[in-house]
């Protein structure tokens, strides 16, 4: 089982400056990868025999409003050899954060590396408005196609109506909050 430091060491020798930071304090360490090189780093993490991260467990989009940035956190895992008789284990785990601009957010899609990324990226696009370049079908997934805005952004304004359906009562509009 490789530790987080060992994985990061391999990544740093391979990609140098593209590994912008490694955060080890806190309850779950993570690496920050430059958005420009994320496509290459992801391919390396998936295919290199030393890494072989075959599980994409989760993609969480987060809003870093105070830094004027958006980010995606990728949770990766590497399974031991496929077996139907022995209990398999998670050999390695890695969390990667990729930070992008708030005004024109673009991150390379990894759906061709992990099929699981397809819906996770669509959800991140729907909720946070991050565009995943190279995604086969980047459409809204949970909200209707004609929804305006990205609901999970911190500065999102709740709509007061949708297709004539009021989202708030007249009482709420006329009486101030107490």
């Amino acid at each position: 089982m490789q530790s987080f430091e060992e994985i990061c060491q391999v990544l740093k020798t391979e990609f140098g400056e593209a590994i912008e930071d490694t955060v080890t304090e806190g309850c779950r360490p993570y690496a920050v990868v430059s958005v420009g090189r994320w496509g290459d780093v992801a391919k390396f993490l998936r295919n290199d025999p030393r890494m072989r991260f075959d599980l994409l467990r989760c993609i969480s989009a987060i809003d870093l409003l105070e830094d004027d940035k958006l980010a995606c956190v990728y949770e990766l895992g590497a399974l031991s050899a496929i077996s139907a008789t022995a209990d398999m284990s998670l050999e390695r785990e890695l969390a990667v954060r990729v930070i992008t601009d708030r005004t024109d957010p673009h991150i390379a899609s990894v759906a061709h590396l992990w099929a699981a990324a397809d819906w996770h990226e669509r959800e991140a696009f729907d909720m946070m408005g991050i565009v995943f370049d190279g995604h086969p079908n980047l459409e809204r997934i949970l909200c209707p196609e004609d929804w305006v805005g990205y609901p999970l952004r911190k500065d999102y304004k709740f709509p007061l109506e949708y297709h004539g359906i009021p989202a708030t009562t007249e009482h709420e509009l006329t009486s101030p909050k107490h």
Partner: peptide
């Protein structure tokens, strides 16, 4: 089994494909 892992399937859907992976044992 390979497709199940590629699509990130978990639980009985993954184990039905002959992948003996359960977090209660693995972690």
């Amino acid at each position: 089994a390979e497709d199940a892992i590629r699509f990130g399937l978990t639980g009985p859907v993954l184990r039905g494909s002959g992948v003996k992976f359960d977090l209660r044992k693995a972690k």
